[in-house]
Each structure stands twice: as structure tokens, then as C-alpha cells.
Design a protein around this nucleic acid. Structure first.
Length: 403
RNA sequence: UCCGGGGUAGCUCAACGGCAGAGCAAUCGGCUGUUAACCGAUAGGUUGUGGGUUCGAAUCCCACCCCCGGAG
């Protein structure tokens, strides 16, 4: 079949590319951000609303849907697209990250290198065959192997499946990382073999590069994944304790990947990280950040000094009649909802407040990615990236030439 | 006027003779392949007022001042 990924333009000043990823349920314009629909819903939103914000693809999770409601049930509905009423492309995560997360604590601490080590673990055993763990729902003992994950993702009918990996934490030693990465490569082979025999027609498979924060291991893993013949490459694992290290680790991988295949950066979604990721040659990203921040009352705004965030639940907005962001076309801003009203809703834990901020955050990132894509196509990424980093509002500023 | 209940952090309330606490609000911090509409920290007090008993009183006693019920 023809290559599913077509690169339309490259930025001469970086590794950035703009392209189109063709899937069984439509095209994904890249670079793209992919909102999380972990449990078959972008929390708080209808599928239609997510599409209206300009998103081509969402991400579901095999681990969570395996436990509840079960992939067999979703299959009886005709697959995840039908079940959640999203008819665009869907990428499903394999569950590898959840294994890591259950065994080593929260990703936040791990990614930032803050964790002091494993807390209570739901993992009973990580063995060559697969992972035995206790379900967080009912305490029952469950088992997930690479083949299980692929079977679940096949039943879900996602357009793009991720192989089952072990996401190596930050606080394990090099030796553990090396052995874990090698096992992830063997699991990659088993995933591809299962998929070749039983995978649904048209489902793409991405391998996952591991290797922790070790350059040689990342290089080894990058080569192994690239050589495996998978349709695309995802970058996972602990990427480092601080942003500069994350960029360095990502760069090790994108610097040696064959460039015709699409690259996904797992779990990264801060505004500055997205800009940098695109420059490093990443084609799509997923992250809980915009939706989680939204539910927690933090809105994305073009304010680099404050990490592109504003806490709308702060009392100082009590009397504010301003929108979150002047000129923003999202439902919250275009709807005319003043910060004072949003603050009131958020403090009262009203669902509408969380929904509106989630909508705003996703709209913000959609425009950010559209600006970056447009700039690559127009050959102006350098200037646009500078403007965005300096606090230009995505999609609202003439310097960020929209396509 | 009498009877009863009650005055403790900004608010709602615990503690009922032995270091005055919680929830919410406030402030600050955090959230990166979502078990999270979440997590953490800080600040906030002459316990209505004045006396008394006691080694020790928010707590027991007396007086007064407020508030809420009920009776008249």
C-alpha cells in the first residue's frame, strides 16, 4: 500500500516537517496535538465538540478500556469509533505506560525525576511473557501480554495502534533500563507478529523507542524500532528530569530516524515543549495537560512568564469581566463568558466551568499547532516560533501566518 | 420579662478540666503515553466581655453583652 504519511514541507532551519497522515478514518494534518480520550471520552466534551475545535485525531487507551468496559463489549458496538461516536482517526495507547505508572508511582514525579522510588505497587510481576497486575477497579488479578494489548487494540478498531512497551522510569539504573529496553524490543517483535497475523485491515502500528536518558541506549532503541518495519515511531519512557534534558533525549532519536515515517512524542504537551518538539521533528503529540489543567481551572494563555497558564479560580478574578483571552474564538471566549463567571463556576465545581476551560485549552493548542504547521508550509517557522515563545497569541497574531 | 439553646479561624462547626482542630474560603505551589472535576503546602485564634474556682479553664461557677427558638 502507499505510504500512509506524506511530508508536504520541511523547515530549512530545523528538523520540523508538515505533512498528512492518511488513516482508515481520514487524514491527520501534522504537526498535530492529539487530545486524550483515555476512557473513550475527552473528559467533559462530546466527540463533535472536539472535532469542531479542529482536531483530526484522539487517543484512547487499551489498558483502561480493557478493564472497563472491556474490549469485547466495545467490539459488539462495532468498535471504538462507533462506541464513542468519533468518526475520525483514533490512536490507541497500548497500556505499557500504565504498567510503568502502577509500578512506579505518578508520571509527574517520574518524568521530572522527583520520585523517591516505588510506592505501593499494583504490579504483581513483570515477566518476559507479560505483566500480571491487580485491577484498580475490583482488585482482580489480570494479565496483559504484548499480544493481549494488540488484541484489545484490534477489537477497538483503532486506526493507529501502539506496541506494548515497558515505560522505563527515571529512577532506575542504567542496567535495568538496558534490560527493560531489550525486552521492549522483543515485545515489539511479538506485537508486530501478532498484528501481521490478526491485525485489522488498515490499522497502522507504531513502535516505541525506549532507552531512558542514556544516549547509546536511545540510539540502539531507535535503530531497533526503525528496523522493525513498523509504520511509525513513538518516543516514550522517561525523557529526563528537566526540559533541556527532555529535548536532548528526543533529539537523539529524531536525529537518527528515517525521516519518511511519522513520529509521535508520547505524553508531552506544555506549550514550549510542543514548539520545541516540532522543531525536533515530531509529527504528533498527546498529553493530559490541556484537559486536566482545564478541569483544575487553569487556562492556557500566551504568557511565557507564567508557563502559558492562568489560574482562573483565583479570587482576583472575582470581579473580572474580561474573557480568558481577548479575540479567542473558542466557545468560552467567543461565548463572552467573563473570568469572574468562570471563577465562580470553577470554585463551585460546576461542570460547565470545567468544560469551558477544557474547550478553551484545546482550542488554544489546536491553533498553536495550526500556526506551527502553517509556518512550516510557508517557510516561516523560525520567526513564528520566536513570536510564539515571546507570547504571541496562536491564531490571533498576524506574525504567525496561518495557512 | 421568663425558660431553653448558643457565641471558638473569614464562614459552618469540633474539642466539654490537660498542647484549640477540621471542612470550606484565602494565599502559594504542583499537574506532561489521565485510576486525578485532583494533590500538596502556608497563613489564619486574647475561644463574646469581666471576674472567680483550679497546679491547669474554650470547658466548671457568677455577672453582663449579643444571637436563635419557645412561653407570656
Amino acid at each position: 500500500m502507499s505510504a500512509p504519511f506524506r511530508i508536504e514541507a520541511r523547515d530549512p532551519g530545523s528538523r520540523a516537517r508538515a505533512g498528512v497522515l492518511r488513516t482508515a478514518h481520514g487524514d491527520v494534518r501534522t504537526p498535530a496535538f492529539v487530545p486524550l480520550a483515555t476512557k473513550a471520552t475527552v473528559k467533559g466534551l462530546e466527540a463533535r465538540e472536539v472535532a469542531e475545535l479542529g482536531y483530526d485525531m484522539v487517543l484512547g487507551n487499551a489498558f483502561h478500556l480493557f478493564l472497563d468496559p472491556g474490549h469485547e463489549l466495545i467490539a459488539r458496538f462495532g468498535g471504538l469509533h462507533e462506541f464513542m461516536r468519533w468518526d475520525g482517526p483514533i490512536i490507541t495507547d497500548s497500556g505499557g505506560f500504565q504498567v510503568f505508572s502502577m509500578g512506579h508511582g505518578g508520571v509527574a514525579d517520574e518524568i521530572k525525576g522527583r520520585s523517591t522510588g516505588a510506592r505501593h505497587s499494583a504490579i504483581l510481576a513483570i515477566e518476559e511473557e507479560g505483566v500480571r497486575f491487580r485491577s484498580y477497579l475490583d482488585g482482580s488479578v489480570r494479565f496483559m501480554a504484548p499480544e493481549t494489548s494488540m488484541e484489545v487494540q484490534a477489537a477497538l478498531g483503532s486506526d493507529l495502534a501502539l506496541v506494548f512497551d515497558e515505560c522505563t522510569p527515571f529512577h532506575v539504573d542504567r542496567d535495568y533500563t538496558a534490560r527493560s529496553t531489550e525486552r521492549t524490543h522483543r515485545w515489539l517483535r511479538r506485537c508486530l507478529d501478532w498484528h501481521a497475523a490478526h491485525g485489522p485491515e488498515g490499522q497502522l502500528v507504531y513502535g516505541i523507542v525506549q532507552g531512558g536518558v542514556y544516549e547509546d541506549l536511545r540510539a540502539e532503541s531507535t535503530d531497533a524500532v526503525a528496523a522493525s518495519g513498523c509504520d511509525g515511531i513513538a518516543i516514550g519512557g522517561s525523557l529526563g528530569g528537566e526540559k533541556e534534558q527532555i529535548y536532548e533525549v528526543v533529539g537523539w532519536t529524531t536525529g537518527r530516524l528515517p525521516d519518511e515515517r511519522p513520529r509521535h512524542l508520547l505524553g508531552i504537551g506544555d506549550v514550549d515543549d510542543l514548539i520545541r518538539g516540532v522543531e525536533l521533528g515530531i509529527d504528533h503529540f498527546d498529553c493530559a495537560m490541556p484537559t486536566r489543567l482545564g478541569r483544575h481551572g487553569h487556562a492556557l494563555v500566551p504568557d511565557p512568564e507564567h508557563r502559558w497558564r492562568v489560574d482562573l479560580s483565583a479570587a482576583r478574578w472575582r470581579d473580572s469581566r474580561e474573557p480568558i483571552l481577548d479575540g479567542c474564538p473558542c466557545p468560552a471566549c467567543a461565548g463572552g463568558y467573563p473570568r469572574g463567571y468562570l471563577r465562580y463556576l470553577l470554585k463551585g465545581r460546576e461542570l460547565t466551568g470545567q468544560r469551558l476551560v477544557t474547550l478553551h485549552n484545546l482550542a488554544f493548542l489546536a491553533r498553536l499547532m495550526a500556526d506551527l504547521r502553517g509556518a512550516i508550509l510557508a517557510g516561516t517557522l523560525g520567526e513564528v516560533a520566536v513570536a510564539l515563545r515571546a507570547g504571541a497569541a496562536p491564531g490571533l497574531n498576524s506574525s504567525a501566518a496561518a495557512s
